[in-house]
Each structure stands twice: as C-alpha cells, then as structure tokens.
Amino acid sequence: MNLLLVVFDLALLAGLIGVAWRCLASTDLFRAVVLFITFGLLLALAWVRLEAPDIALAEAAIGAGITGALLLVTLERLRVIIAGRRSDRPDTVPPDPSGPGAALQALHDPPPEPRTRLPALTFALVVGSLLVTTLWHQPDAAGLEPVVDAHMDASGVDHPITAVLLNFRAYDTFLELAIVLVALLGAWSLGRHDRIPARPAPGPILPGTLRLLVPVAVVTGVYVLWAGSHQPGGAFQAGAILGAAGILLVLSRPRRMPPPPGTLLRLGLGAGVGLFLASGVYGLLAGHGFLGYPPGWDYPLIILIEVAATLSIALTLVALFIAGRPEGDDRP
C-alpha cells in the first residue's frame, strides 16, 4: 500500500513541477494563467494527500479560484489598456500599424534573452539544492500536535486548526484579516473603480444558472463556516466561497455595477477586524490577556468573530476583484 502512495506522490509532484515549469516558460499570458489555475487545483490535491483538508479547501477556493479570477480580469484590463481593444468588440480596434494585433502583442511576453539564463539558472539551482540538502538533514520529529491536543479542551472548539487559528494564535489571524484589508486600502488608494471591461453575455443561460448557483453557494458557505468549529472548514474558506459567489454576480452584470453605499460597505469591510479587536481588548481589560476569551465565552465569541470575518473577507475579495474605490469616497 505504501508503495502505491509513493508512486502517487511522485506522479503528483512531477505533475506540479511540470505545470509550474510550463506556466513560467509560456510566452502567452493567457496560457500562463490557465496553467497557474491548474497548478492551484493540483496543489489542492497535494494538500489533501498531506491530510490537510482545510488547506485543500482554502487552496481550491482562494489559491485557484479567486486568484485565477483576479488574474483573468487583470489580463482583460491590460488588454484594454495596452492594446486599446476589447476582446469582445473586435470592431473597436483603431487601425493598428504596429505589425501583429496589438492585443496579441499586449499579452505576449517574448522569451527573455539567453544572456541572463546561465547566472539565473545557477543561482536557482544553488538555492534549490541547499534547501533540499537542509531538509534531508532535518529530524523526522512530530511538531506541536501533542501540545495542541493537550489544550484542545480549553480552546472551546473541537477542530484543532480552528482552535489554533482563533484561540491559540489569534494574533496572527487578526493580522491576516488586517492584511487583507490593507491590500484593499492599497488597491483603493491607486484609483477609482472602473467597470469590468466586458459586455454582459447575451442569452438567458448565465443569469439562469446564477440564480441557481448563487443561493447554493451561499448555503454551502454558511455550512462550511458552521462546520469549522468541529471539522475542516472555517471563516476563510467560507469567505472565499461567498466571495466567489459575489464575483459571479459582478461578472453577470459587468456594466450595471451596483454602487455600494459608502458607510455600509466600510462597516462590512471593517466588521471582521473590528469585532476581533473589540473582543481582544475586552479580553485584555478583563484580565485574560490581549485577544484572550473569558472562560466559557470562547465558543460563542469565536463563532461571532468567524461570522464577521467571513462577511468581511467575502466583501473584500469582491472589492479586490473590482479593484477601485467607490465614487462615494471621492465626494468632498
């Protein structure tokens, strides 16, 4: 049985490295992005193999899903900006004097000149081999699992990963939520939002399916959030699923962007971080240490924080997809 697993591992790793190599070596950006999404899905498979279902869920939803969507929309924006032409309106192309279609040229990165090949290759090989030799020398010791297991009962949740995320190392998770928010602030500081440069798909198919899929996505998201306390799941995965549903909605009506109300959007975005900080400060004042939960209150608080976090993450991911600050911010 062990042999089969080793063969599977080797095949999976070979696949991963192969896809990654093709992705980085491809000259056409669209091909690179598609390969990157497959890389993300294969990665999710690898995390399942390493008995990390939460991470597999997150990788599939965030790593492959959301990142893939962001990349594709960025390509479309680059195509519009650089080539001045939108892929679904060929007639709008101004006469393009510079050889092959500028659109093609825009999303085409010529293979780099061979001059830097050797130094870069040797540097990467040196780094890689040093890493591998170091890893081979490392002892095969179990990590902090026994320690976590010993404190599980005091953590208020049954699932170890949620316990670590929201109780033992709550500070890291808080900062992680903060980073997502900061990334959005950074994106908003760059400019006001513009509509997704695409025409709505004609025909009833997409709206119809969305009417079916979006409610299911919302239910799944809530289920994943709720399940997080005792089995793989949690705020980030749920947030990603809801975010994906939001992005689908945005894609279905690219022109009629619903202008989000300023304060409500801000409150939604800040809910996760705000609530987490409020409970943390309360913990500090009540003497349980910053980000500590009063005994007995940890389960309800964790659930409350997770709900707020899911809402915030979903909103932030959709806002990052739109990548521009709402007009409301610019009114004096």
Binding site: F174, A178, L181, L185, R266, L267, L269, G270, V273, G274, L277, G280, V281, L284, G289, F290, D329
Partner: peptide
Amino acid sequence: AGLIALSLLLAVLATVWP
C-alpha cells in the same frame, strides 16, 4: 499589549471612518 491594541484600534477606526 495595550500599546499594540491602541495602535490597531486607531488603524481600524481610520479605515472604517475615512
């Protein structure tokens, strides 16, 4: 811990109330 809480509180407030 209070110092960290205070600086984070300011940042969150400013984000929510630009």
